[in-house]
Design a protein around this nucleic acid. Structure first.
Lengths: 169, 169
DNA sequence: GCTGAAATCACACATTA
DNA sequence: TAATGTGTGATTTCAGC
């Protein structure tokens, strides 16, 4: 049974901390926020169960591993019937090189962010996943020279705090 | 003193797991990979110290919090002297709404991904951070209708594994 | 890779608003 | 009634060997 509740100040403070570091002991976090350790833990558990916290992960630096090449790939499909769009999206979901994929309006249908080792790997990716399988009318590549910012942290301002949040199941 | 070493199979397996879930007890992870728990822990610690693991964080679902609106913002600067580019990049770094920023070649200089609550918030953001401060020649907004994939996980194939990785400081 | 001490997590229960 | 705080046992981390 789905229910709704609003995020209060404590929730927002917790999220702001956990977005930076989720390995901090609940005891330390509790002290910082002037609540007890079990309260801290309970709130975090609830945020996870509610899906506000999607996942708890280690961030790996792609450049530290030789994945120095990034590409923006714009794709327009031949056939835009629902099943074909789903087929394309499913394919992108399976491809490990695809970091992000967006359905966009305008000249192209999809905007895809691809992370690969080098140009050869990118070429192979395009042949295998884009031009190979068919149903692609046109595609266009751009190569960002530098990633100057990348964050998964979202900001919690007052307005957002007042919004109702769908929690739990 | 910086030193180099290559990632072996164990490192890659560890990273593949931790990218999905960094809350798994090292004991469980050790059993899965058929190594001892302290070995597992030491490897992970080394990967963190080496900077291969950037951060350990909770991922927050922006849509669960009412941040339902995404925008692609392309910007070209008036003055492209180094100091002005740094100034723009620094500004994007400070803005909480900016999730990603890339320096690109072509018609525009920067590709910026912005995450906001609604169109009004986006308008305010553009006025404050883009058109307001000056040195922007032209900008153009696109609004992706759906994010069909977003991951921070990078793939570890054999080729990548053989690459030398800069570790330590 | 094994063992053990220290720390953390996570539960039951009393308390408060 | 629902959420917080206190106290306690089970797990986990992490150092020494």
């Amino acid at each position: 049974m789905p229910h709704f509740r609003a995020l209060d100040k404590l929730d927002r403070k917790l999220l702001n901390h956990l977005q930076k570091d989720n390995q901090i002991p609940t005891r330390v976090l509790a002290d910082k926020l002037h609540v007890s350790q079990p309260t801290c833990l309970r709130r975090i558990r609830d945020l996870r169960e509610a899906g506000v916290i999607n996942a708890d992960i280690s961030m790996v630096d792609p450049f530290a591993l030789g994945y120095g090449m990034l590409a923006f790939l714009e794709v327009s499909l031949l056939n835009q019937a629902d099943e074909f769009m789903h087929e394309f999206e499913a394919r992108m979901n399976k491809e490990a090189e695809v970091m992000q994929c967006y359905f966009v309006s305008g000249e192209y249908d999809y905007f895809v962010v691809v992370h690969v080792i080098d140009m050869d790997a990118y070429y192979q990716f395009v042949r295998r996943a884009i031009s190979g399988p068919g149903n692609v009318r046109h595609f266009h590549s751009r190569f960002p020279m530098k990633k100057t910012k990348f964050t998964t942290r979202i900001a919690f301002d007052e307005k957002a705090a007042e919004l109702q949040v769908k929690t739990g199941k």
